[in-house]
Simulated assay, not measured.
Amino acid sequence: MTQRRTVRSRLERLAREIAKFGAVGAIGFVVNLIVFNICVHGFGLAVVRSGVIATAVAIATNYVGNRYWTYRDTDKSRRSRELSLFLLFSGIGLVIENGILALSHYGLGLTSSLADNIAKNVIGLGIGTVFRFWSYRTWVFQSLPAREAVQTAESFLADAKPQRVDAGK
């Protein structure tokens, strides 16, 4: 019975994490889509250049959302390491996302606005998102070390304990 609860609680935590990551990603998707289309259609920039700019803006948006909401309870002691790894894995995701756009646009000759948006914002972003979720939760936003987590929990419990008062004193 206890093992079932453990598995169930892990699955529930994972589901909450995926939901939060997805909500942050949805905002990043909208930012990415808008910036991409403004760059291409408003400023006339090349599609891959526009894709890189849009993804970079979305990465910044997503970092704020993931750090301060999705993974707000994870270890914050090594922020520069976290940011460096976030940018590294986000950069790999950027290459995945815009590499698929470049392949579609230049390699396959699918140059319509619809084809560019599907290649970048559906296929590329979908594959990039799976990679980012896995890498962020594995390496970037790490849990507190076990000893520190136990100390934090013990400290919380000690503070929450009701104080015993003797009536005769």
Score class of each variant (00 low, 15 high):
residue 99 G to L: 08
residue 94 L to D: 10
residue 63 Y to G: 02
residue 128 G to N: 06
residue 126 G to A: 09
residue 123 I to F: 08
residue 117 N to K: 06
residue 83 L to T: 06
residue 153 A to V: 15
residue 84 S to V: 12
residue 16 R to D: 14
residue 51 G to V: 00
residue 106 Y to G: 04
residue 79 R to M: 14
residue 75 D to V: 13
residue 13 R to P: 00
residue 128 G to I: 04
residue 105 H to D: 13
residue 124 G to I: 06
residue 71 Y to H: 10
residue 118 I to G: 10
residue 135 S to I: 12
residue 26 A to T: 15
residue 33 L to T: 10
residue 118 I to L: 15
residue 30 V to C: 07
residue 18 I to V: 15
residue 154 E to M: 13
residue 65 G to Y: 06
residue 95 V to F: 11
residue 61 T to Y: 03
residue 120 K to R: 11
residue 25 G to I: 06
residue 32 N to E: 13
residue 86 F to I: 01
residue 106 Y to V: 07
residue 88 L to I: 15
residue 22 G to T: 08
residue 25 G to Y: 04
residue 14 L to M: 12
residue 22 G to A: 11
residue 30 V to T: 11
residue 11 L to V: 14
residue 9 S to E: 15
residue 114 L to A: 15
residue 56 A to C: 08
residue 73 D to V: 01
residue 122 V to N: 05
residue 113 S to W: 06
residue 69 W to G: 07
residue 104 S to R: 00
residue 103 L to S: 12
residue 19 A to M: 05
residue 26 A to Y: 07
residue 106 Y to P: 00
residue 135 S to W: 06
residue 106 Y to S: 12
residue 62 N to W: 03
residue 135 S to G: 05
residue 94 L to Y: 05
residue 65 G to V: 09
residue 135 S to Q: 13
residue 97 E to V: 13
residue 145 P to T: 11
residue 25 G to P: 01
residue 118 I to P: 04
residue 89 F to R: 08
residue 104 S to F: 06
residue 22 G to F: 05
residue 152 T to W: 05
residue 82 E to N: 08
residue 148 E to W: 04
residue 36 F to H: 07
residue 68 Y to K: 07
residue 118 I to D: 12
residue 81 R to L: 12
residue 81 R to M: 09
residue 65 G to T: 09
residue 102 A to I: 09
residue 63 Y to D: 06
residue 96 I to C: 09
residue 26 A to L: 15
residue 96 I to R: 02
residue 45 L to D: 02
residue 52 V to S: 00
residue 9 S to C: 05
residue 78 R to V: 11
residue 39 C to F: 02
residue 45 L to W: 09
residue 120 K to W: 00
residue 98 N to C: 14
residue 47 V to L: 02
residue 24 V to G: 10
residue 104 S to E: 02
